[in-house]
């Protein structure tokens, strides 16, 4: 058994989602080779060589792989595929773009965004937006798999010592040309796209007090939201409202501060993965949906959070 894992990176550092894919790959059993395809990406290859569980790094360093164009990348992977039983990678946007092309060129099916490895050919994956979990078995000799990174622990980034082999085949297929890129500036992320959201309610008491929340948000790289009560009270503008009549969010972490938890607010955030409630009223309905509740005075809790995070 041998596994080809595709690294996700920006030509200078390895994306941590790759480490989650390594964990999934190691559950399959077999030697793991990791392909680093890019341009000027030697540092990524060096980083990949350190990852626990990697036996070989394949480095394809050429300008045609710089932007991870699916047309070029997929043909490169297919070229290498003959030596492997599994081709696996974290489901990043580059991989989601590329991997189905690999599967089609190999005339095999693809298993998208698996969340568990049952055996070398059987996996679990969410369907219907996560409202059901399917157990699926691949019938192909080569298994093409993408991995939902959040479902697997990250492998250790250090401690490994793999050799690097240079792959010098160049596939510049043409037809697709990179024009421009506009990456989201760092700073506070947009509410519906943020992986962490911290929202304030009527309990904050005033517009000025929202700055307490913003300081914690900046520490967490979180977006700031608000309940309808806070918007109604004029603390913040309407476009920050989370809820049935506002924005629907489903971040990894949602922190509700001074929000009682009216159902129309819950409708806007209850799909969040982890919910934290901070409220001085221990009876507030928000605690019924919270994974972690902290009953306390937010004017003490927020500054403490800011210092300790």
């Amino acid at each position: 058994m041998s596994i080809l894992l595709i690294a996700e990176h920006d030509n200078s550092t390895l994306n941590p989602a790759t480490l989650s894919a390594v964990t999934a790959a190691s559950q399959l059993g077999g030697d793991i080779s990791i392909l680093v395809a890019g341009s000027g990406c030697q540092s990524v290859a060096d980083e990949a060589a350190q990852v626990m569980g990697i036996s070989k790094v394949l480095l394809a360093d050429n300008a045609c792989y710089e932007k991870g164009l699916a047309e070029n990348l997929s043909v490169l992977i297919v070229e290498l595929a003959a030596d492997y039983n599994h081709i696996i990678a974290a489901a990043s946007s580059t991989i989601k773009d590329t991997m189905p092309r690999v599967a089609a060129l190999l005339d095999v099916g693809q298993l998208s965004e698996i969340v568990a490895v049952e055996s070398a050919d059987t996996f679990k994956r969410p369907i219907y937006a996560g409202n059901a979990i399917a157990t699926v078995q691949s019938l192909d000799t080569v298994k093409v798999i993408t991995v939902r990174a959040s479902a697997f622990e990250k492998a250790k980034a250090e401690g490994g010592n793999a050799n690097t082999e240079v792959v010098d085949v160049v596939f510049d297929i043409g037809g697709s040309r990179f024009v421009s890129e506009e990456l989201v500036k760092s700073g506070r992320p947009e509410l519906t796209a943020a992986s962490t959201v911290i929202s304030g309610g009527r309990g904050l008491g005033s517009a000025e007090n929202f700055s307490l929340l913003e300081k914690v948000a900046d520490k967490l790289g979180a977006a700031v939201g608000a309940s309808r009560a806070a918007v109604d009270a004029g603390f913040v503008s309407n476009d920050l409202q989370v809820g049935q009549t506002g924005k629907i969010v489903a971040p990894e972490l949602y922190i509700a501060v001074g929000i009682s938890g009216a159902i129309q607010h819950l409708a806007g955030m209850k799909e969040s993965k982890v919910i934290v409630a901070i409220n001085k009223d221990g009876e507030a309905p928000i605690f019924q949906v919270a994974d972690y509740g902290l009953v306390g005075d937010l004017f003490e809790v927020l500054p403490e959070l800011e210092t300790k995070l």
Partner: peptide, 29 residues
């Protein structure tokens, strides 16, 4: 190419827990 063996309902959200300090909260998160 792929055979669907079984379909299940995802695990339900566990009942939450109440913590007594900011430190405990940060630790859990």
């Amino acid at each position: 190419h792929i055979s669907q063996l079984k379909v299940e309902t995802p695990a339900q959200r566990q009942a939450g827990i109440k913590l007594d300090s900011v430190d405990a909260l940060i630790d859990k998160l």
